[in-house]
């Protein structure tokens, strides 16, 4: 019980800090959604792109837009490990390592979701005309979004605790996050990618981001053209577990326990 209270209070602390940035997120989200609308719903269709790609590209950009937010959170963890060592204080609190790492991942996921809400909200209004095909349920969309962010946060947290600060600064973006974005069906739906480059598209299936983006595309359009949510949700759950236990292993190794 004591451990659980400590866990809740640590998450509360993270949300308390995030709260002070919400207005900033709102403005940034509105600007991002406006930019996406101009590019994907105005310029590219005017240049001859089929409107079928508009919601697909919006979803892809929505996810890739969140990767820098996750990177920024990871940077805070990396700097803390190297410099402030607040983590050592947390490690002396009445809470187990399993809950400490869950708190890291959960707070990062919730933080990114909070950043996401304004982009999604403004985007839903702007892209309204393209999302009418068969509107999916909001709850399924949120479940997929949560699982996607949780899986990505868990995997990247494992990387941050496993490697040194120097490695993080030099390679995290290039070796950790860019492959997640670019090999994750960000722009092109998976079936279209498979038609053009089957080997590369098969490689995309190893990336949890593929299932997140395709699942959200499937929900907002209701089209069978995308990987169905019945496949995406279990795969994202599996990646979340793998990421969580990987992060726990790295954390224990880092803290020498």
């Amino acid at each position: 019980m004591r451990e659980f209270i400590c866990f809740i209070r640590l998450v509360q602390r993270d949300l308390y800090i995030l709260k002070s940035y919400f207005f900033q997120f709102l403005i940034e989200g509105g600007i991002a959604a406006g930019c996406f609308y101009l590019l994907y719903a105005c310029f590219l269709p005017a240049m001859g792109m089929t409107p079928r790609f508009v919601p697909a590209m919006f979803m892809g950009s929505l996810v890739s837009n969140m990767i820098p937010v996750i990177f920024s959170s990871l940077q805070q963890v990396a700097i803390d490990l190297e410099k402030h060592r607040y983590i050592e204080y947390i490690a002396t609190l009445p809470i187990s390592n399993a809950l400490i790492i869950l708190r890291f991942i959960l707070s990062m996921t919730l933080g990114t979701l909070i950043c996401w809400i304004p982009v999604c909200g403004c985007g839903a209004l702007l892209f309204h005309a393209f999302l009418r095909e068969s509107p999916g349920s909001l709850s399924t969309f949120l479940i997929i979004a949560f699982l996607l962010l949780f899986a990505v946060c868990a995997i990247t947290t494992a990387i941050v605790f496993f490697f040194s600060y120097t490695w993080f600064n030099s390679y995290m973006w290039v070796c950790g996050l860019m492959p997640l974005i670019f090999f994750g069906c960000e722009i092109v739906p998976w079936r279209d990618a498979y038609r053009v480059a089957p080997y590369l598209a098969t490689l995309f299936l190893l990336n949890p981001v593929t299932y997140g983006i395709e699942g959200m595309r499937s929900v907002i359009t209701g089209s069978p053209h995308y990987i169905p949510t019945s496949v995406c949700i279990p795969v994202l759950l599996l990646w979340s577990f793998i990421g969580y236990f990987g992060a726990l292993y790295s954390f224990n190794k880092r803290m020498g326990r």
Binding site: R13, I17, H84, R85, Y86, I87, E88, Y89, T92
Partner: peptide, 13 residues
């Protein structure tokens, strides 16, 4: 209660 050599306080608070 543990007080390390380098104070590891919460920088965001």
């Amino acid at each position: 209660g543990f007080c390390p050599q380098r104070p590891n306080l919460d920088q965001y608070l």
